[in-house]
Nucleic acid binder design. Structure first.
Lengths: 138, 138
DNA sequence: ATAACGGTAACTCCTGGAGTTACATCGGCC
DNA sequence: GGCCGATGTAACTCCAGGAGTTACCGTTAT
């Protein structure tokens, strides 16, 4: 895997789960094989998705993971913000007491436009559901 | 600096240049002091901005950097895509010949929605110019 | 009881950004 | 012409974080 492909991997895993819906839970090894990675990596990712109430895990023998709701109600935006940093844009440390007005005020000035950009990203990703993705796959 | 704060740092530097417009070039040491980092880091970043035709460098004594055009014509989107990876979303390696249809087709299926999301991000960032940022700073 | 699961800790490996030093080069200015 | 203050860039080091791996515990169907 490439670094920080967490979002795409999560979508990949969710799509696999969507295709197996109603046929019982899918184990991490099976998902890992499709994604071409390690079962532990999948379990860790699923942990984050579970905390976001997008999947649920079934413990014990014949356990695994399944979607916690209708795939039509899970969007790419849900997956993105469950798995990636909540901040799309990382700030450097600015000193509000700096003598340079740019350094002192940039954070406040940029917060509006950056929030707007995150919202735009969210809205766009929210237009595609896991169901859409799963249905597009033959 | 935090890791991958390249975009914010670039906006910071551009804002400094905007405030000094018409007063001659600003040297990398002065920008670095405001950003609270190293002059070499600034010069490297300016190199990328220069390749995107957003700034120009003046060599020799009393040299430095200045905006290459009206700050009202430079948007946050220009800066973002000059300085960050062209791909907002990183793919993991998918094998198109995989026996799992999800692994084989996910790349094609996602390309549309992901391109749309990048466009949405671009459009939102394009609504704010460096002039807007510079004017908002007292 | 056993075997097949998830959950998690404790690592290692690797990539990439940031910081730093050093040096070549350029171009006003005296 | 020579100096000095800039950029440009190479060659590192340092560090954070994602990914991969092994190991072990708890859980549950058979």
């Amino acid at each position: 895997m490439l670094s920080s492909s967490r979002f795409i991997v999560a979508v990949h895993a969710m799509s696999v789960l969507a295709r197996f819906q109603g046929k019982g839970p899918v184990c991490s090894a099976a998902v890992a094989e499709s994604v071409h990675t390690n079962p532990v990596v999948i379990r860790r990712l699923m942990g984050e998705l579970e905390r976001a109430h997008l999947v649920k895990s079934v413990a014990g023998r014949a356990g695994g993971f399944e979607l916690s709701k209708d795939p039509a109600g899970i969007t790419l935006a849900d997956v993105y913000f469950a798995v990636e940093d909540e901040n799309v844009f990382r700030m450097h440390k600015t000193d509000p007491r700096s003598c340079c007005p740019v350094a002192a005020q940039l954070g406040k000035v940029l917060s509006g436009p950056l929030r707007a950009a995150e919202c735009a990203l969210h809205s766009s990703l929210a237009r595609t559901s896991i169901r859409d993705v799963a249905l597009a796959i033959v």
